[in-house]
Design a protein around this nucleic acid. Structure first.
Lengths: 344, 344
DNA sequence: CTGAAAGCGCTAACAA
DNA sequence: TTGTTAGCGCTTTCAG
């Protein structure tokens, strides 16, 4: 095991017959601004390549007081929505030649603050926050260290934020359900799941009300089952509803994939015909949902657009609070051939 | 907007009436080894806290030639298995007080090598590789820079690797399917999906053969439909099989969630009774799969264990090639009440 | 167009 | 038990 002969610009400089500063410039792109002769640059680059030199990024970062790292804090990796944000974030970072550092912190304020402290200690170029529990504190940490930052999927009064249009998304979803023109849908559609104390859920309920209001109906409290986000609670709430109504409602709008899982857990216990009597819609998207034996309308949040908008704020180094809405997209699965009537 | 008065150990030192090196030691934990008086340490820590000092990690990293960063390269974030690895990796890194840097590289060798080059430039403490396309090159890069590294979910001849027990996992799954004792299952079970040229698929086919061999049956080529990993190909392959057999096989073992999606896309077109005539199993797990109207046996790779084993290699700074197998777990969904016969 | 030299903030010998 | 000092490898004035 060789002790690895650490190469520095000095090694390259000696070998290329140039000075360290010239080498530095030739290798990091500033040579144009420094008006270094192109063939000098070429010569140096050739030597660097030959030696297999690559810069020590920590040294560079120390000197420049920035690191080329960009941070993102999110609740969890193993979640479809969050992981699609990670994916989008990675792509954007790559386009800017930055290294994405994505840390999941389990909605734990301490972990969040700790992660930010460390990333700031690394002189990250910017931070993106998703679904954090202590947004104000994080924003303060960043402002203190003068680090650009933005919130995604949650509104903020301290910094720019980019959020899905919950109201509009649910309105669209509910309207699509109504267009199916199932008898009684306007007065009987039910909203299932979520916590009405939270921003997202309350916005979605608002959209739900608006959609029905457009049909002249004022939503009754019994149409809102905000039983929380947990799967089992959703299952039980739906079971109770089924009991009470003696069947499913004509239309059911479920507030999240977790709740959908709960709902499906109940639905697989009841006869096919009973299910066929209900039009189903969900906030959020899961490909397996498309494959259920009955069609499920879904609203997919546009992770790419959310991240792109958020990055745009960072690029402009905006720090004033703002709220940008991104419209989610409605996904209507093809009706299984089995269920199609006629057509060609 | 204040220019942010950058605090250094010198500021703290002056304020605490101590020297920079003492402050450094007091703040980074080496003070015990340096035998600094506890009350000095306390005094310094108090001052640091009061001033809101926090260390410049790039400077520390430059000096120590390590960064406290650990890297992980994986194909994509938006995939259930990979994202559960990310989750596990984050937890392990956190336990070691390291910052996890997880970069997805789309199975693109250039992106992979680029990411490693940059992370090595940052003096990462170690690297973990998942499903990479250019394993040999990555291993070489790390060895060159003397960075500990390990492969997960893919075998390597250059470094330690930790892989799910594909053979055993599929054997277990196939056996569980056979235990259902559906007539003709031994001779009629079909393996669907995957690429027999790849390590994972070939191992799984091996397990499939072993399971049937245990029942005295030698697998026929027509029982292996390695149609690739793409959803649509799986769908079409299953459709063709259905056509050929005039129904589903008595048991079907699907090689991945993507292929399962393809299979379900076909299955939702055919009558319930036809589906009920087939026992279904899949390599990999998806919670929505549990909720399908017919039970689907699943094998879940144990992401936590894979990462833990991999980290163990890093902790021991092993670099010799090795192969560690981790047994995946069989998940048998509860039979829907609807389908249960009697029992209590 | 290129080189010399200072210094980013920290740690670790070495002295005291 | 603590302080002094010399770098880690790079970028960046400032001279030439």
């Amino acid at each position: 095991m060789k002790p690895t002969p650490k190469l520095t610009i000095y090694d390259v400089a000696r070998r290329a017959g140039a000075s360290p500063s010239t080498v530095s410039a030739a290798l990091n792109g500033t040579w144009k601004a420094r008006r270094i002769r192109p063939d000098t640059v070429k010569r140096i680059q050739a030597v660097a390549l030959e030696l297999g030199y690559s810069a020590n990024l920590q040294a560079r970062g120390l000197r420049k007081a920035r690191s080329g790292l960009v941070g993102m804090i999110l609740p969890a990796h193993d979640n479809r929505f969050f992981s699609s944000l990670s994916q989008a974030f990675t792509a954007e970072a790559r386009a800017r030649d930055q290294i994405p550092v994505i840390v999941s912190t389990q909605r734990d304020p301490e972990q969040e603050e700790d992660a930010v402290r460390r990333l700031v200690g690394y002189a990250v170029d910017a931070m993106m926050f998703v679904g954090t529990t202590a947004p104000a504190a994080l924003s303060a940490q960043c402002r203190e260290a003068n680090v650009a930052h933005v919130f995604v999927d949650q509104p903020s009064t301290d910094a720019p934020s980019v959020v899905s249009d919950n109201v509009g998304g649910v309105r669209t979803l509910a309207s699509a359900l109504l267009e199916r023109a199932r008898p009684g849908a306007v007065t009987g559609m039910v909203f299932l799941g979520g916590d009405s104390g939270l921003y997202a859920t309350s916005q979605r309920i608002k959209g739900f009300r608006e959609a029905l209001a457009a049909h002249g109906h004022t939503v009754d409290d019994s149409q809102i089952l905000a039983c929380g986000y947990r799967r089992l609670d959703a299952r039980d709430a739906l079971a109770a509803l089924y009991q009470r109504l003696g069947g499913l409602p004509p239309a059911l709008l479920v507030n999240s994939i977790d709740c959908l899982e709960g709902a499906l857990e109940f639905l697989r216990e009841i006869p096919d015909e009973a299910i066929a009597a209900c039009d189903l819609g969900v906030w959020d998207h899961d490909p397996l949902g498309d494959l259920w034996r009955h069609p499920i309308l879904m609203v997919r949040q546009r992770a790419g657009a959310l991240v792109r908008q958020a990055y745009a704020h960072l690029d402009r180094r905006e720090s004033a609070p703002s709220l940008t809405l991104v419209t989610p997209e409605l996904i209507v699965p093809p009706l299984p051939r089995r269920l199609r009537r006629g057509g060609r």
